[in-house]
Design a protein around this nucleic acid. Structure first.
Lengths: 228, 228
DNA sequence: ATATGTAATTTTGAATTCAAAATGCAGTCA
DNA sequence: TGACTGCATTTTGAATTCAAAATTACATAT
C-alpha cells in the first residue's frame, strides 16, 4: 500500500475534553450564569456521564478561571467583578497588541483579503444595525489577526482570557456611542494592517481593548444593584 | 462579638491541588525530564494516593502546557522545542513589559528599596561568580516587579509561561558573555524602575526576555544532537 | 421567637472496580 | 531470519463505591 498523502489521524476525544468544551460554552454564553453553583449531579445526568470525567473537566475550567472550587463545598461559576475586568483587559490588551505586531510581519495576502471582506461586512452590519452580524464579523477579524500572528501559545492565552470576558460582552448591550467609536477604531485597524504597520496596529488594538474595558465597566457599574 | 479585622480563612487544600504543585515542581526542576512518560502508577505509590486525584492533576498540568495527554496512551512531559521557545518568549516579553509599566505606576517605596537590595545582592553574586545566588536574586527581582504591578491575572499568566521555560534555564548553563550582558540589562532595569519610567522599563524587560530567548535557542541548538 | 444542639440527608473527595484499549510476547508461516 | 497473527498482560478511561464533610431539618431550651 502506498499512501503518498497520508490521511489525517483519526482524532479521538476523551470524555473530559468534550466536557471541558461543552461546559466552557455554557459558561461563556451565559447558560450557566456567573455566581451560580455548578450543579454536578444535574450535569452528570444531562450529559449521561459519571462524576469522574465531569470533575476532571471542572478542575481544568478552574485553572482557566471560569469556575472556582471550594474544597468540600463544590464549584461555582466565577462572577465578573470590576476588579477582574480591570485586571484581565490590560493583559488582553498587551497580548492583542503583540498579535497585531506579529500579524503584520506574517500575514499572507489571502488572509489580508479575507480580513478586508470581514471588515466590509462588519461595516455593512453596522449600517443595518444588525448587532449579531456585527459581533460575528468582529469576532472573525480578531480571530483572523490572531491566527496570522503564527503563534499558537498566543492564541491559547488570548482565547482563555477572552472567554472570561466574553460573558460580559453577551450581556452588556453595546451603547450607540460606543458602537460608533468601535467602528471608527476598526477603520484604523484595517488601515494599519493593510499598511503592515505593526507598531501602529498594536497601539490601536490596545486602545480598542481599553475602550472595551471602559464600556464593560460602565455597564457593570450601572447593573451593580440590579444583580445584587 | 465584634470582628473588626476578620481573620483570614483557614486554607485547606485538596489532594489534587497538592499534587498539581508537587508535579509542577518536579517538571520545572527537571526531576521529570522533558519527553519522559509520566509514570502514573509509580507516582501514585510514591505519593500514596489513588489514581483519581493524580489524573485530575495531570489534566490541569496539561491545560498549563507542562504535560500532554494522548487518549488511551497516557501522559508525557512536554519537550522543550525550538518552536515552543520561539512562541512562548515573545508572549512572556509582552507580559513582562506590561508588568514593568504597571509596576512603575504602583510600586511602593519599601518594595522599591527591597528590589534595590536584591539588585545589589545580584551584582555581588555575579562578582563572586555565584550562579545559584545570582539566579535566586534574579528570580526575586522579577517576582518583585510582577507583584508591584498589582495584577493577579498577570502574575498567574507569567508564572505559567515562565514555568514552561524555567526547565531550560535550569539546564542551559548561562554563558559568560550572556551573563555580562544580563547584568548590564539589570542595571538598566533598576534605573528605569527608580526613575519610575514605565515605558523604558517595559522596553528593557522585553529586550531582556528576547536575549534570554536567543541564549536558550543557542543552547538548544548546540544540544540538539546530544539529546536525540 | 430566636438561638443552640442533634440526627438525618445530601454532597463531596478519593479509593476501588471494571471494561476497553494498547502493549508485549510467543508461535506460525513465508 | 523476519514479519504477521492470536493470546496474555498491562495500562487507561470512566463508573461505581465508600467514607468524610457539609447541609438541612428538626427538636429543645432560653
Amino acid at each position: 500500500m502506498n499512501l503518498t498523502q497520508s490521511p489525517e489521524p483519526i482524532s479521538r476525544r476523551s470524555l473530559h475534553e468534550e466536557l471541558v468544551a461543552r461546559l466552557r460554552t455554557m459558561i461563556v454564553d451565559g447558560t450557566m450564569a456567573p455566581g451560580m453553583k455548578v450543579p454536578e449531579k444535574d450535569l452528570c445526568e444531562r450529559f449521561a456521564v459519571s462524576r469522574t470525567p465531569l470533575r476532571e473537566a471542572l478542575k481544568v475550567l478552574a485553572a482557566d478561571g471560569l469556575v472556582y472550587l471550594e474544597p468540600n463545598r463544590g464549584a461555582w461559576v466565577t462572577e465578573l467583578t470590576e476588579s477582574e475586568v480591570s485586571e484581565v483587559f490590560p493583559v488582553l490588551g498587551a497580548l492583542e497588541a503583540l498579535s497585531g505586531e506579529l500579524a503584520c510581519e506574517n500575514i499572507m495576502d489571502e488572509e489580508l483579503a479575507a480580513l478586508r471582506q470581514h471588515h466590509d461586512q462588519m461595516i455593512l452590519s453596522y449600517k443595518e444595525q444588525d448587532l449579531d452580524g456585527y459581533f460575528q464579523a468582529n469576532q472573525r477579524i480578531h480571530a483572523g489577526i490572531l491566527s496570522a500572528a503564527r503563534n499558537e501559545t498566543l492564541v491559547v492565552q488570548c482565547e482563555a482570557l477572552s472567554a472570561r470576558m466574553q460573558r460580559a460582552r453577551y450581556v452588556a448591550n453595546i451603547s450607540e456611542d460606543r458602537w460608533v467609536e468601535a467602528v471608527s477604531e476598526h477603520e484604523e485597524i484595517i488601515a494599519a494592517l493593510e499598511a503592515k504597520d505593526g507598531k501602529a496596529l498594536g497601539e490601536i488594538l490596545k486602545k480598542h481593548m481599553y475602550n472595551k474595558q471602559l464600556s464593560i465597566l460602565k455597564w457593570l457599574d450601572a447593573n451593580r444593584e440590579t444583580a445584587a
